[in-house]
């Protein structure tokens, strides 16, 4: 059974379709990235999964049931929304203690201390949260979300509004949870670099429908045309090489990147004939590397394609 199962999910607000027939699933132990621009429907999907909003049609199941009417099932789920869910007028320890008891954690005191350490806030444990920086609050929010050791963690833009240093810290914490604790993580984000580093599987949402859904590796492999980065033995022959390559039918595009040449091949073309041709022309190739597409390129491609077909 999938941890999350979304089937033909639709949601309309005041006659406007916000979600259009979403279908995806998240398996146990996966770190799932739900990507999309602002207004794509990510938060609405998350809220439906959490049982905070109703679906107009279709299903959003967590552990095989809807969280909307399963109060006790929510004990197995940890949530960090845009708001950290912590109280400025209470100390870090009081906040964690409150949630530990709400979730009926067996040894709340020990767990609170462990979570303070996890978030690196042991020394500030008794300070009011109102005096914390945004990064500290986010880390405390994450500690709060996992204090009951959930099997599934749902995150909404976990590094939004944080400085780069805090972003790295929060990202590392998420990686630790998925690695050491084998927690299933569902993460809403429009931070592509973050998703690329953290997630094993992604869905790209645009205007309420999923445009791509696969593992990051498969998306990279199957998206667009293959590319080669060449480093020539004699950089002075770069212009000649560019000229030659642009005439080959298997080459769709050439770009110069410093002393390297970036060659985009036509779909299905192998790289070896190109290298052979260069050597035949006495242009020595020192290094040839296959270039993977970044998630950002894939994302932009998918979004542009969706815009074009709309």
């Amino acid at each position: 059974m999938s941890v999350i199962e979304v089937r033909d999910l639709n949601r309309t607000f005041d006659g406007k379709k916000v979600l259009r027939g979403l279908n995806f699933s998240v398996e146990k132990g996966e770190v799932f990235g739900f990507l999309g621009p602002n207004g794509a429907g990510k938060t609405t999907t998350l809220r439906i999964l959490l049982g905070l909003l109703r679906a107009s049609s279709g299903e959003a199941l967590v552990f095989g049931a809807s969280l909307a009417n399963q109060d006790r099932l929510r004990r197995r789920v940890g949530v960090l929304l845009e708001n950290n869910g912590i109280y400025d007028r209470l100390s870090a320890r009081e906040n964690l203690d409150y949630y530990a008891r709400l979730y009926a954690v067996e040894e709340p005191r020990a767990q609170v201390e462990e979570m303070l350490e996890f978030a690196g806030l042991t020394e500030r444990a008794d300070d009011l949260v109102g005096t914390f920086s945004a990064g500290m609050k986010r880390k405390l929010g994450l500690a709060r979300a996992i204090i009951h050791d959930p099997e599934l963690l749902l995150l909404d833009e976990p590094t939004s509004g944080l400085d780069p240093e805090a972003q790295v810290l929060v990202r590392d914490l998420i990686l630790r949870l998925s690695g050491q604790e084998a927690m299933t993580v569902f993460m809403n984000s429009h931070h592509l670099a973050e998703v690329e580093r953290v997630c094993s599987k992604v869905a790209i949402l645009h205007h309420g429908s999923i445009q791509a859904f696969d593992t990051v590796e498969h998306l990279r492999a199957g998206s667009g045309m293959p590319r080669l980065s060449l480093s020539l033995a004699d950089p002075e022959k770069t212009a000649t090489a560019l000229d030659l390559l642009s005439q080959l039918p298997s080459v769709s595009r050439t770009e110069r990147e410093g002393n390297r040449i970036l060659v985009t091949l036509t779909r299905g073309s192998p790289a070896s004939p190109i290298l052979t041709r260069l050597i035949q022309e006495d242009i020595g190739v020192e290094e040839a590397t296959k270039v993977s597409r970044s998630l950002e390129e894939i994302y932009l491609g998918v979004v542009q394609e969706a815009e074009g077909s709309a």
Binding site: L50, D71, R74, L81, E82, N83, G85, I86, L102
Partner: peptide
């Protein structure tokens, strides 16, 4: 107003 209630609504309490 602060949005904390949303987190509370996700807790096991009705």
């Amino acid at each position: 107003q602060g949005g904390i209630v949303e987190t509370l609504l996700c807790s096991p309490l009705s």
